[in-house]
Write a protein that binds this DNA or RNA. Structure first.
Lengths: 109, 109
DNA sequence: AATACATATGAACAATTGTTCATATGAAAG
DNA sequence: CTTTCATATGAACAATTGTTCATATGTATT
């Protein structure tokens, strides 16, 4: 670094969240960053659905859907409730829907 | 599908955006879903910065930063302007900052 | 208990991704 | 026009990721 950016760098440094937060933030978006998961999340933003309904909707294997729902659950993006043999999934909180619609706004510019 | 979810599936189907939009949406979030890129975006949300300033801030090689800035540029998440030898990068539009802060809100629950 | 159905899990594979190293371009100054 | 500095690019490698197949839970019904 030869030119004089030190002051700005130092200041931006003070504005940065801690590493852990930035890691968690990237992790959050990484979950959204997959076509299958986005389709699942979008579907769930319209209605709670059971695994086999999602599988039929997306025309995919139950196993693949179940794997992804597990990922979404671990990331606390969805909740589930059991009703007999069937497990219904829904979005965990309103932030999830908001992030999706914000993203939608961005791409449709 | 033995049980009676057909009506709901059909309705949710009508609510789904076209495949291309969902693909673009996932693509958008995928870009956010990397620690290095999130750190870059967060830094740029505070101040426009040149490549070597970002490199110093994140304590990474210029090459790695340049590669990622290229990805961000192709995804239209950042703009750049040249001033002599130096190239300054900044966030492309306000949506980018909004998405980051929405994400931040979500993880700090 | 045995069967059927919905969902979950584990292992394995192919595909994608981010970084590094080496090298190339672009721009100003000597 | 050669040197120096800032940035960009290409190829290659290691690491991560999503899906599939096979199999295992879990829950109700007979």
């Amino acid at each position: 670094m030869s030119h004089n950016h030190e002051a700005i760098i130092k200041w931006v440094e003070t504005q940065m969240p801690k590493e852990e937060s930035l890691y968690d933030l990237a992790e959050l978006f990484r979950i959204f960053g997959d076509t299958t998961r986005i389709r699942i999340l979008y579907a769930l933003s319209k209605n709670e659905l059971c695994v086999c309904a999602v599988a039929e909707l997306l025309n995919m294997q139950h196993s693949a859907i179940s794997h992804q729902l597990r990922v979404l659950k671990q990331a606390r993006l969805v909740n589930c409730r059991r009703e007999g043999k069937t497990v219904y999934y829904s979005l965990a909180d309103s932030h999830v829907g908001t992030i999706i619609s914000q993203g939608m706004e961005h791409i449709s510019e």
